[in-house]
Structure formats: structure tokens, C-alpha cells
């Protein structure tokens, strides 16, 4: 017997139909939302990061090998324009579903490890005592472990990862102030704190087997705070 034939009277009879319509709406919303798109990636500063440049170079080179004649910059400009167009279409298509997705929080963001970060950063924190800079925390170090329980938690690792990108400059500075606040408390005889990111290229398997580890490393985004102001 079909649902039509056995349908009870009133709302109870209509409910399975309404529910099916709601489920189909939900399926449309989550499928469209999950559809691959470069949202959050359209930042000129991020495209200047060596990890992204290296990735683009590899793809540009591969496309040239099959007949395209563009150089790396032209390839990058093409990708930029294509990404903008995709995002515009996506915004238009998702518009009716956004209130539902925002209200329920049933978002669909599954860009996980889409690319290895070949130029990651390692967090360095040093305090100045008697005029000498002394490291107190170094990312993943077993020697410099101040506030390690906090910095090694996955949510804080995410902050450190994001703050390695230039577009997070302002937040990086606020994060630095938060570190200074704790350093002032935990190191009463320290005069200053220095917070830096060690940016390096991860070695290839051959380089690592030859004993080379963090290649071409340099410090960036240095922050210094006078701890007197935090006591």
C-alpha cells in the first residue's frame, strides 16, 4: 500500500510529506555547501607565501608540459580570476540556504590537509634576564617547555599555524600580548619577552637522510614586550 493510500487524516497524514521535503532541503544545502570552493583562500598575502608559490609553480610547470604557454604569474592570475568567479557563483547558489546553515551550525567545511605546508613555522619564546635572552618555549622541544600543556593543545596549535600567515598579523600581535601577560607573572625577574616564528622549508626524504633538517630557516614576525608594563 502506498503512503497515499494509507495516509491518516490531518497533520499526521501530511507530516511524512513535509518531513521528506525538509530532508531534501537539508540534503541540497549540505551538498552545495560541501562542494569544493576556494573560500578563505583568496588573500594576496597568502598567495605570496613560499608554500603556495611552490605549489603554483609545480602546477604551472605541469600545465606547460601539456601545451599551455603561460608563465607562473599568468597562471596565478588565471587561478585568481577563476577562483573569484567560482566564489561569486557559490555565493549566489548558497544564498537561500545560508540562514538555515548559520542558525543550525550544520556547516560543511572539509578542506583537511589539502596541501602539506612546505614552509611551516615553529614558535620561539625567549625572556631577557640580566641582559641575556633565554629560550623558555620552543615548539615541539623537550628542553624548552614553559606552558607546554597550553601551547601543545590542538586548539592552540591551530592558532600558531594560522598566525604563521601574514593576514593574521594583527591577531599575532594580540597573541603576543597575551603571552607577555603570562611571562610577566611566571618570570618575575625577566625584563622583556621576545616572541618569534622560525620559518623553514621541510626537508625532502633525501635531505633528511643526509642529516639536513630545517632548511633555509629564518626568524620572522618578531614581537618584543617590556614586561614591567604587564606587572
Amino acid at each position: 500500500m502506498s503512503p497515499e493510500q494509507q495516509r491518516p487524516e490531518g497533520f499526521r497524514g501530511w507530516w511524512p510529506h513535509i518531513r521528506t521535503a525538509l530532508i531534501l532541503f537539508h540534503i541540497c544545502a549540505v551538498c552545495l555547501m560541501a562542494f569544493p570552493a576556494p573560500q578563505g583562500a583568496l588573500q594576496k598575502s597568502s598567495w605570496d607565501d613560499p608554500s603556495v608559490k611552490n605549489e603554483m609553480h609545480m602546477w604551472a610547470e605541469r600545465s606547460r608540459s601539456i601545451g599551455f604557454t603561460w608563465n607562473d604569474v599568468e597562471f596565478r592570475d588565471f587561478l585568481w580570476d577563476a577562483s573569484k568567479a567560482i566564489l561569486e557563483v557559490r555565493r549566489w547558489v548558497l544564498w537561500p540556504f545560508m540562514p538555515y546553515m548559520n542558525w543550525t551550525g550544520a556547516r560543511q567545511s572539509w578542506r583537511m590537509f589539502s596541501a602539506p605546508h612546505r614552509y611551516p613555522v615553529r614558535l620561539f619564546i625567549e625572556v631577557e634576564q640580566d641582559g641575556i635572552w633565554r629560550p623558555v618555549y620552543v615548539g615541539r622541544s623537550d628542553e624548552y617547555t614553559w606552558m607546554r600543556d597550553t601551547f601543545d593543545h590542538h586548539r592552540i596549535r591551530r592558532i600558531i599555524f594560522l598566525h604563521g600567515w601574514k593576514r593574521y598579523d594583527r591577531r599575532w600581535s594580540t597573541f603576543g600580548k597575551w603571552i607577555a601577560r603570562h611571562a610577566a607573572e611566571d618570570f618575575p625577574d625577566a625584563t622583556r619577552v621576545r616572541i618569534r616564528q622560525w620559518k623553514f622549508r621541510t626537508p625532502s626524504p633525501e635531505e633528511l637522510r643526509d642529516g639536513k633538517r630545517e632548511i633555509g630557516g629564518k626568524f620572522q614576525r618578531e614581537l618584543r614586550f617590556d614586561l614591567q608594563g604587564y606587572r
Binding site: P36, E55, M58, W59, R62, W110, R111, M112, F113, S114, A115, P116, H117, R118, P120, V121, R122, G139, R140, R157, I160, F161, T202, P203, S204, P205, L208
Partner: peptide, 27 residues
């Protein structure tokens, strides 16, 4: 997540080396 793994390192042109390089990230 699979079809958004568009990095060359997930593919033959990057030598299928994505997992190796992800493991090298200290983050």
C-alpha cells in the same frame, strides 16, 4: 576532502609525498 586535496604532493607529479611532508610539519 578527497577531491579538495589538489596539492601536487597528493599526486604523481609531487611524488605521492603529501603524507611524508605533512608529518614533517611541527604544527
Amino acid at each position: 576532502t578527497g577531491i579538495q586535496k589538489v596539492s601536487a604532493y597528493w599526486l604523481p607529479i609531487g611524488g605521492w609525498s603529501a603524507l611524508y611532508y605533512i608529518l614533517q610539519q611541527p604544527t
